[in-house]
C-alpha cells in the first residue's frame, strides 16, 4: 500500500527536483552574487541586489503589479463563475460549450493580445463603430492604458478560472438543488447558499491560476499598455535582457516569490483543506 503510493508520486518528484528545485537554487544563488561586467554573475557574495528592494521605486512597482493582478482576478471570477455554471448546467452539448470556452486559447497568446490591439486602437472596430453611429466624433483612447492591460489579462487567463470551477460544479449532485427548492429556497438563494459554497475549492484553485500568471505577466503590459507601466514581470525581464543585471533580476524574482509564498501560507493556515 505505502510502496504503491510513493510510486505514484515518484515521477513527479523527479521532474520537480530536476526541473524546479535545482534550477531555482541556482537563481537564488545568483541573487546574492555580483553583477558581471557584460552580464552574467561573478563573485563575491553580496546582499546588495536584495537590499535595492527597500527602495520606494521598486516597492511601488510591486504594489501596482498586485493591484492590477487583483482586479484581473476579480473580473475573471465575475465573468467566469456564471460561465462555468452555464456549462455545467447545460442540458445538452456540454462538451461543445466547454470547448467553446477553451477554443480561443489554442491560438497563440501573442496573437490573442494583438487581436485586442485591432479592436481597441483609434481605427479599430470599437472606435469605428462608435463614430459611425454618431456616438462620438473623435476616437476614444481605448488602447495603451491600464484598462486595456486588465482586459488583456482577463481575456488571457479566463479559462484558467472556468476549467477548475466547472470541474467542481459538474460533480455537484442536482438533487441538492431540488432539496433546497423543496425546502422553499429560491433559485438565487440556492445558488448563494448551496452551489457557491460547494464550488469553493474550484473557485480558489481558479483564482490562484489567474492571479499568479497575471502577477508575472509582462507581454500584456508591453503590447496593450504600450510599455508605459513597469510591472514586476517587466522589471525581471528587463534585468535579464536589456539591463543585463542578472543578480538584480534574480533578486526581484526572489522577492516576488517570497511575497506570494507568504500569501499562500496565510491562505493555507486559514483554510487548510482548500488547496491541493
Amino acid at each position: 500500500m505505502k510502496r504503491l503510493r510513493s510510486l505514484f508520486l515518484a515521477p513527479a518528484w523527479l521532474v520537480i527536483a530536476l526541473g524546479f528545485w535545482i534550477p531555482m537554487g541556482i537563481v537564488a544563488a545568483y541573487s546574492v552574487l555580483t553583477r558581471g561586467m557584460y552580464g552574467g554573475v561573478e563573485l563575491p557574495i553580496t546582499a546588495e541586489s536584495l537590499a535595492r528592494f527597500a527602495d520606494p521605486l521598486y516597492l511601488g512597482i510591486l504594489a501596482k503589479s498586485f493591484v492590477l493582478a487583483g482586479i484581473a482576478t476579480v473580473l475573471c471570477a465575475v465573468l467566469g463563475f456564471p460561465l462555468a455554471l452555464f456549462v455545467a448546467r447545460a442540458s445538452s452539448r456540454k462538451n461543445l460549450w466547454l470547448s467553446l470556452v477553451i477554443l480561443p486559447f489554442w491560438t497563440s497568446f501573442l496573437i490573442r493580445t494583438y487581436a485586442w490591439v485591432f479592436l481597441l486602437r483609434d481605427t479599430g472596430l470599437f472606435n469605428t463603430m462608435l463614430i459611425a453611429t454618431g456616438a462620438i466624433s473623435e476616437p476614444m483612447p481605448l488602447l495603451y492604458n491600464d484598462g486595456a492591460v486588465i482586459t488583456g489579462l482577463v481575456y488571457g487567463y479566463l479559462p484558467f478560472f472556468v476549467l477548475p470551477v466547472y470541474a467542481t460544479l459538474e460533480r455537484q449532485d442536482p438533487l441538492l438543488r431540488d432539496a433546497a427548492a423543496d425546502l422553499g429556497a429560491s433559485p438565487w438563494a440556492t445558488l448563494l447558499r448551496v452551489t457557491l459554497p460547494l464550488a469553493a475549492p474550484g473557485i480558489r484553485a481558479g483564482a490562484l491560476l489567474v492571479f499568479v500568471p497575471s502577477l508575472g505577466a509582462y507581454i500584456t503590459s508591453d503590447l496593450l499598455g504600450g510599455s508605459k507601466t513597469v510591472l514586476i514581470g517587466n522589471l525581471v525581464q528587463n534585468q535579464f535582457t536589456a539591463g543585463r543585471d542578472w543578480p538584480f533580476g534574480a533578486a526581484a524574482g526572489m522577492v516576488l516569490m517570497s511575497v506570494v509564498a507568504v500569501l499562500l501560507v496565510l491562505l493555507l493556515r486559514r483554510d487548510p483543506e482548500s488547496l491541493l
Binding site: 521605486l57 511601488g60 512597482i61 501596482k64 510599455s227 508605459k228 507601466t229 513597469v230 517587466n234 522589471l235 528587463n238 539591463g243 543585471d245
Partner: peptide, 10 residues
C-alpha cells in the same frame, strides 16, 4: 541609465 529608465517607465 538603467535606474533612470526604470523611473521613467514607472
Amino acid at each position: 541609465r538603467d535606474r533612470l529608465w526604470t523611473e521613467i517607465k514607472a
